[in-house]
């Protein structure tokens, strides 16, 4: 399902001395079935944007279209939108509350008013997706490890069967292995089930490994968007907003100070770089 955001503006505490413009004219297109990363430093408006898309914050101005649903300053039909969108906040394990893992995951589908059998099926399915052993279903979520709790929380959102899944720094605070597991899970959901995934991140390397589209926010505006190539070729713009290029790309730049002819600079992953270097070496050996 597609998301289109036009001229979105969100102002907090309007008309008070504490007024703050969190978003100031954001434009964004998220194609259905894509894996889009929203990048930006802390305070760039990332959280506000995803909450507006999820129908939790009403826009001050501008319009958001999700499939055929519209959200703007005047319309209040957000409940429909919420069924389509799963939103995973930062450190989602801090929102667990039920006595058992299964009950917590069932919270969303139960709220949707689904029959019990359907709810049970979804809980089972969601646990499977996130790789939680079915034996854990009757355990208290608070006895699990941090990484497992995070997965329970994500399963709780997946159980709504959202068409669009939005996650705010889903790997924050996990160790490298835990991060890898969560992000691979998202990639699978995206590829195998066609779920549109929006990943909010300040980690360029992580984003570039998993996402296929990118949107850079800075100071409440969308300053760059498109494919990795379109976004990361603008190092000038990125650096002016305190964002770095992916580590591999920076390494290619380092290489290009020496290599003649230089390597293309739209290389973002280790695999790509390895392939390019191998090609280069074989070409040299042939003549």
């Amino acid at each position: 399902m597609e998301i289109v955001v036009r001229d979105l503006e969100v102002v907090y505490q309007s008309g008070t001395p504490w007024m703050k413009k969190a978003l100031d004219g954001v434009n964004l297109t998220v194609p259905g079935g894509s894996f889009t990363a929203i990048l930006g430093v802390t305070g760039s408006g990332k959280s506000t944007l995803i909450q507006a898309i999820a129908g939790l914050i009403r826009p001050t101005r501008g319009i958001i279209r999700i499939g055929s649903h519209l959200i703007d300053a005047n319309r209040k039909q957000t409940a429909d939108v919420r069924r389509l969108i799963g939103l995973v906040f930062q450190y989602p394990e801090h929102q667990l509350f039920a006595e058992t893992v299964a009950k917590d995951i069932a919270f969303g589908p139960t709220n949707l008013g689904l029959p019990q059998s359907e709810v049970d099926g979804r809980v089972k399915q969601a646990m499977e997706w996130v790789g939680l052993d079915s034996e854990l279903a009757d355990r208290s979520p608070f006895q699990l490890s941090g990484g497992q709790m995070r997965r329970v929380a994500i399963a709780g959102v997946l159980a709504i069967s959202p068409k669009i899944l939005i996650l705010d720094e889903p790997a924050a605070g996990l160790d490298p292995k835990g991060q890898e597991e969560i992000l691979s899970l998202l990639k699978r959901l995206n590829q195998d089930f066609g779920v549109t995934v929006i990943l909010v991140s300040h980690d360029m390397d992580q984003a570039v490994r998993y996402a296929d589209r990118f949107c850079v926010l800075a100071e409440g505006r969308s300053v760059l968007s498109g494919t990795a190539k379109a976004v990361f070729s603008r190092a000038d713009i990125l650096s002016s907003y305190h964002l770095e290029l992916p580590e591999i790309t920076r390494f290619v730049q380092l290489l290009n100070r020496k290599l003649d002819p230089p390597l293309p600079e739209d290389v973002f992953t280790l695999d790509e770089l390895e392939r390019l270097l191998e090609e280069r070496r074989k070409k040299r050996e042939l003549p």
Binding site: D175, P176, K177, D205, E247, I248, F251, L270, L273, E274, L277, E278, R281
Partner: peptide, 20 residues
């Protein structure tokens, strides 16, 4: 031990493996 490797080290190892 489930830890990340700096990418330049990973690349170095891979290239060595390919006979560079």
């Amino acid at each position: 031990w489930g830890l990340a490797v700096p990418p330049e080290i990973e690349l170095h190892q891979r290239l060595l493996g390919k006979g560079w």
